[in-house]
Each structure stands twice: as C-alpha cells, then as structure tokens.
Design a protein around this nucleic acid. Structure first.
Lengths: 206, 206
DNA sequence: AAACTTACTAAGCGCTTGCTTAGAATGTGT
DNA sequence: ACACATTCTAAGCAAGCGCTTAGTAAGTTT
C-alpha cells in the first residue's frame, strides 16, 4: 500500500469531510432537521457515499458528540491540574472552557443540544463523560471552599452556574461580532471568581 | 350560541390541548423530531384534527414561542419596575426568571432552543421580543453601575452572563430532583448580585 | 496487462412525512 | 322534526426520508 499508519488515507480524509459537513448541518438545523443528502452534498459526495464511510446518520452524531465531550473533559482536567491554587485553576478552567465554547460554537452546540437524538447506548456513554466534567468542576469549587479561598452557600449550585455560563456561550456566540473569544473568556473568568466568592487575587474592584 | 366571550368554547379547549401536547413533544424530541401524528395522538385526536384548529405544525411552534417569550418579557419588566433600588430589582429579576425557567422548563426549552425551526417572518417577530428582554436586563445593570451600587468591568458581558444563567436552567433542570425551583432561584439571585459586584445588601459573606 | 482492491455512484425500496379532501357524527336553534 | 353549524375522522396524496443494492471507475500489485 502507498499509505502507512502515519499519513491519512483518502478514506480518512473523506470520512473527516463528512464529519465536518455533519457538524455544520447539525449545528444549523439540528439532527432531525438535517438529511443524509444534506451532509453528503456539503461534503461533495453522492448520498450513498455517506454509508461507505459511516454506519448511520446517528453514528455521525455519536462520533461528533464523543470527540467533543472528550475534548472538553481533557481541557477541564488539564486546567484543574494547572495550579495548586483553586482560584488560579478556576480562572483557567472557565477561561479555556469559554474559549472553546465560543471558538468551536458549532461543535459545542451539537454537543450540548442534540443529546436526545443519540441512541440509548450512545447516550449512556456520553452522559458518563458529562458526569466527569461536572464532577471535576464541582470538586474544584469544593476544594477552594475547604482551602478557605472560596466562600459560597452551596458549592454544588455554584458549580452548576459556572457550567451554565460556559455552555450557554455556545448558544449565543456568533462569528464576526465585536466580541472575540479571548475577551469573553477573560470577563467570564472574572465573574466566575466572583460567583465562588474568591476575594483576593485581582478579582476585586478596580 | 351557548358560549359567550367569557367561557371557553369546545374548540378553544381542544386548541389548548393540542398546544400542550406540542409543547411536551417539542421539548422532548425537538420540532423536527416530532410528527403531527405524535401531537394529535397525545391530544387524543386523529392526525387530521390538528389542521382543524391550526394552520400548520410551524404555527404551533410559533404560538408556543410567542406566548412564552411574551410571558418572560412581562416578568422581567415587572421585576425591573418592582424597586427603585437596582440590587433589589436585579434580585427579583433573576429570581423570577429562574423560577420560570425551572418550573416551566418544558416550555422554556422550546422557547430557547427551537428558534431555528420558525419561519423567517415569525423568527423576526420573536427576535424582537428577545431583544426587549436583553435590553431590559442590560439597562438594569447599567443603571446599577451609574448609581454606584454595581461595579463591573463590562455591564454588557455581565448582562449576557445573567441571561445565560437563567436560560440554561431550562436545559439542565429536571422534575422530581432534590432541587426545587425556589431554592435554585434564591442561590442564583445571590450569585447574580456577586456577578454585578453589588457589595452591600446581604449578598456578602456570612 | 491481467487480477485485485479501494472509493465511489445511479437507481431505487419501503416507509414516513406534513397536509388535504370528502364526509360522518354531534350538538343547537326553531 | 328539520335545517344548520360545529367538531372531528377515514383515507390518502405527493414528497421526502434513511438506507441498500448492484455496479462502475480508478488506482495498485504482480
């Protein structure tokens, strides 16, 4: 064969092109609002070509959802581990989380709002990744409270709010506006520290 | 006729039953994942009955979306006007907004996540209501900053975050959990005051 | 150049979709 | 009892759906 394990075969490129087309279509019109003909056409292929490279339309959603969730989980865990100081770590978590949900809003929209279209087995698998993401953030907030650097009446609710802030960026963010992902992330990270009642590290007034 | 303007005709009751069935179905499976047969069956009627009372499937979505948005706009405006003190008003806005998005999560899910399925004309009309909602909240935050009771580097971003917190409750809230709408609303209202940097009125530590 | 593999498509199958049509019940006014 | 309006349904149409089948074209190996 002319391709070895390092480089991509033609099939891999086409597979990826179909996934990209599916992400765009699902983000715009939703899973059920998208036809397999839409996806194939956007990838420059005949309707049948989709089934050469993927088992079903649902498999496309699953692959998108799984890699998207795994990316976010890795990002959150890396950010949590990036500093021993809970405030510094939380700032990083929220910053990176928000940047991803803005920059990759197309993917994160599918990831967060098309769960119901997954098969029961796939949904169960995805839910587990989501649980790890939520757990990581909740544990970070609790660690900050225990360490005495955060102050909040209910860490669980604070964690839910932080997650909501990030996830919802994927809903309202639009490309080409005057708000760039980095700026949103910076403001949201400041607000996150306020939410958990982190007093000292340049989160205060001024 | 046996019914006058005060009481509901049989048609009105059936119309409402179809709307209720549509809300549940759209919230669970999305607009495109729902068939007109699903809706009619859930309302205890034949598929054709839907078209006796409504023009189209899209009209059902429009009616749900419009009344849902108008309800939220009225709620926000009433809360804003409920106090001259921006902190008290904001607490009320977020509290009521969150209670609605939890208690009526079924409706608010359709309201916030099925916009793309509306016809262009209907979408334009709904967007205008959404703009009024966002404007009311942003103006309240700006009024608080002007009055010197709020402190935030970017009132527009703070307003976006407040909206996100409330809207996203509709996504994650489940009935029958251990979190009751009133409790979530109370915690979220506290966090809202922290986000806008409202220092004094029992939003601090303790 | 023959034998084989890979990447793709034309055509279409069985089913479901949103919606319509024509008509049957049911209730109401006189 | 009769005419009439209201409320609903049985049947089905044209279009679109996810997916399959059978085959073609292009590249690779020997």
């Amino acid at each position: 064969m002319v391709t070895d394990s390092a480089e991509q075969s033609r099939a891999d490129v086409t597979r990826a092109r179909l996934l990209d087309a599916a992400v765009s279509a699902f983000a715009e019109r939703g899973f059920h609002g998208t036809t397999t003909r839409d996806i194939a056409a956007a990838a420059g292929l005949s309707p049948a070509a989709l089934y050469v490279h993927h088992r079903s339309k649902e498999e496309l959603l699953y692959l998108i959802s799984r890699s998207g969730h795994e990316h976010v989980l890795a990002l959150v865990r890396a950010a949590v581990a990036s500093s021993a100081d809970p405030a510094t770590a939380l700032r990083r978590v929220v910053h990176d989380f928000v940047v991803t949900h803005a920059r990759d809003h197309t993917t994160t929209r599918v990831v967060n709002y098309e769960l119901a279209a997954l098969s029961p087995a796939h949904l169960a698998e995805i839910r587990e990744i989501r649980h790890h993401i939520e757990q990581a953030i909740r544990q970070l907030v609790e660690a900050g409270v225990t360490a005495g650097v955060f102050e909040t009446p209910d860490p669980r609710m604070a964690a839910a709010a932080l997650l909501s802030l990030g996830v919802d960026v994927g809903r309202w963010y639009r490309d080409g506006g005057d708000l760039v992902p980095e700026y949103i992330a910076a403001r949201y990270a400041e607000m996150a520290l306020r939410i958990v009642g982190a007093g000292s590290p340049d989160a205060g007034s001024g």
